[in-house]
Design a binder for these strands. Structure first.
Lengths: 219, 219
DNA sequence: ACTTGAAGATACCGATCGGTATGCTATATT
DNA sequence: AATATAGCATACCGATCGGTATCTTCAAGT
């Protein structure tokens, strides 16, 4: 009974990290255990299968992301500020998540893994779908706020535009990861989102006048 | 010397198919050989490593896609028609590629695999980058044509918008695959692209008046 | 103090992994 | 016809795969 929760968390985070820098099927249980400093007996004491660990890690990861999203979508901010917060968060996350790794862009390991899962890996797929549903709610709220504020052109389908954001962000992050270039993400993120939500020109922020400097790592 | 090219092609296409319905690292050499009706000796006669097969399969896949792209981007079409062709091709490809498989949406296996590859799998990454570079040229040509035709609002950065298309399409296909819903792709593809290229309203085609019916499978 | 069960350690399981060594066979070359 | 080599088959390699069986340890409940 010596520190069960800590062992579990260590496994969760180690697994997330390893899956992050490669992918689900190429990361072995042995490797996870070794890096987590945990024996296999302990592993299978906490999780029935490797897939179950994955699902747990996915939820664990979402909890952290939920905190971030709650923060940037706080009612303390206007919808426009929330949008800006989102842009900054995406960039910032790539930096923080890639610390101690050799990647410039991480993306979301669980989402991409879910998109690559075969029909057989139902658990993996469901985990990604679950996260997708969660994040979609936040995006809908953002777009609804923007629309309510009257900063969008036309009369868009809110849920559809929310999906647009998601598609684009995911695609961009995969691209950024493929090219191993965070600058590639920076170059396209803002303008792409602006176009997808069709933000009125007068509310757009030019790339040259970004609020924070790129290197504001100060925690 | 009995039919070397055929054996090679069989391996290439079998590998592509298998990787398609799952992913690179979870598909074994044995499985590929078995399904291709080829022995392991034959496999390693044609390819040095599994990764080399993957790269070859990637190029083989690109050759087919290049033919498709050359067809839809033919000078016989106006830029607007080319755009419409692209939309139809993406949908159609998902249908044709998924025949005999249990997936509704396939996406591009090589691109997503490249995006998930670790730093170590340089070959896999390079293959995806290579294909990315190729397809980007086509997208640039499309956007340039559209801009030249004067059907786009504003004065967009052509290369950037071309990248936008790619990000969005890839993200959407991963989403469609995750949800296993081709309708999800259909629902967002056209409108998303329109917004990213900022096509003038008068040139947009409403979802309800699509040129071909959804079920036109006739080869 | 004694029991109980969670937490974890060690050793092992058959299966499969990517890859190799060697041999056979048919065709092309001389 | 003899030879050489591409094309392929069979058998096998050590390593690793996900998972299990069994054991110890330690802390809480009574």
């Amino acid at each position: 009974m010596r520190n069960a929760a800590e062992t579990r968390d260590k496994l969760l985070e180690t697994a997330t990290g390893l899956i992050w820098q490669s992918n689900y099927s190429s990361v072995g249980v042995n490797e996870i255990c070794k890096q987590a400093g945990v024996t296999k007996g302990a592993f299978y004491h906490h999780f029935d299968t490797k897939a179950d660990l994955y699902v747990a890690a996915s939820r664990h990861y979402w909890e952290g992301m939920k905190r971030d999203l709650d923060a940037i979508y706080s009612p303390a901010y206007t919808p426009l500020e929330q949008l800006e917060n989102l842009i900054q968060l995406i960039i910032q996350k790539q930096i923080s998540e890639c610390i101690c790794r050799d990647l410039e862009v991480a993306g979301c390991p669980f989402f991409t893994a879910g998109g690559q899962a075969g029909i057989d890996d139902i658990k993996i797929r469901r985990a990604a779908q679950e996260m997708e549903e969660h994040v979609q709610k936040y995006s809908v709220a953002l777009v609804r706020g923007l629309k309510g504020e009257g900063v969008l052109n036309g009369d868009p389908d809110i849920e559809q535009v929310a999906r647009f954001l998601h598609h684009f962000i995911q695609g961009l992050l995969v691209y950024g990861r493929l090219m191993n270039s965070l600058d590639a993400v920076r170059a396209d993120l803002r303008e792409g989102l602006y176009r997808l939500i069709d933000l009125k020109d007068e509310y757009r922020i030019a790339e040259s006048e970004q609020p924070y400097s790129k290197a504001s790592d100060a925690a």
